[in-house]
């Protein structure tokens, strides 16, 4: 069976984690999440890289939640494995570069937000699409998105659910490190990773611990509110109806 997550680690200490589910378009199926978490376990416990490049398919970086999970939420099941991802990502002990060549939607965008350095593609679309599907944002989006794009742009993205092209975000003065033609995204990530990999690994981990502290707190703050909103929003009968109508099988 084709792996949904591909992990490679070079001698230089540069690791690459590729979300590679071309069939499922990198949505959060159970297998996808399990493989993802397993790869993070391996990185943390075995490879201990200096830096990680997190990337996806050429057309899709990450697609976010699958229908089944959302219906589970509507049915009152609180345990959602998707939530593990943002938690695990912000707690990684090494710097992470998100190389978002393809689109990133909903929880898939949050995967990028959890990283330390973000590179987007001019041609691709990025959206906090939760509200378009009938429910409030999750996975830390409510605090992490404003860190990356600024609070007012984040408000617009979350309230409207509209997907913004990288080229459009480039004109808005966000905090995204680079917004490049798609073909240059991975190369830029490689350049940055190489610069980072030249540094002392112990100092890198130390610095990551300090710089990552704010994001860990932001995620905790977000989850307090988001989990409450989810309990309420997913209990609305119209939410389940909307999800069922909108998701294409």
């Amino acid at each position: 069976m084709k792996r949904k997550i591909c992990l490679s680690v070079q001698d230089t200490g540069i690791a690459r984690l590729k979300m590679n589910d071309s069939e499922g378009k990198n949505i959060f199926t159970k297998e996808f999440i399990n493989e993802f978490v397993h790869a993070l376990d391996e990185l943390e416990n075995i490879y201990k890289p200096k830096v990680l490049i997190l990337h996806g398919l050429d057309d899709v970086f990450c697609g976010g939640a699958e229908k089944e999970t959302l219906i589970d939420l509507c049915d009152g099941k609180i345990v959602v494995i998707d939530l593990i991802l943002s938690e695990r990502l912000v707690n990684l002990p090494f710097p992470v570069i998100a190389a978002m060549e393809g689109h990133a939607m909903g929880g898939g965008l949050v995967v990028g937000l959890c990283c330390d350095i973000v590179i987007a593609a001019r041609e691709s679309r990025y959206g906090s699409v939760f509200m378009s599907m009938g429910f409030t944002p999750g996975m830390g989006c409510t605090t992490l998105l404003s860190e990356l794009v600024g609070p007012y742009i984040a408000n617009e993205m979350m309230f409207t659910g509209r997907r913004f092209r990288g080229s459009e975000l480039a004109g808005k003065g966000t905090h995204i490190n680079y917004i490049l033609p798609k073909s240059e995204v991975l190369q830029k990530a490689g350049d940055l990773a190489l610069q980072i990999s030249e540094k002392n690994v112990k100092s890198l981990y130390l610095l990551k611990y300090t710089l990552g502290a704010k994001k860990k707190k932001l995620l905790i703050d977000a989850r307090l509110q988001e989990d409450l909103m989810h309990r309420i929003t997913f209990a609305f009968p119209e939410t389940k109806k909307t999800i069922n109508e909108l998701y294409v099988e």
Binding site: K25, G63, M105, G127, S132, M133, R163, L246, Y247, V248
Partner: peptide, 16 residues
Amino acid sequence: MKDYGANSLDMIEVVS
């Protein structure tokens, strides 16, 4: 739209 590779979100966006 599905024939052109549209997913659920694409279709919601096009329709709305």
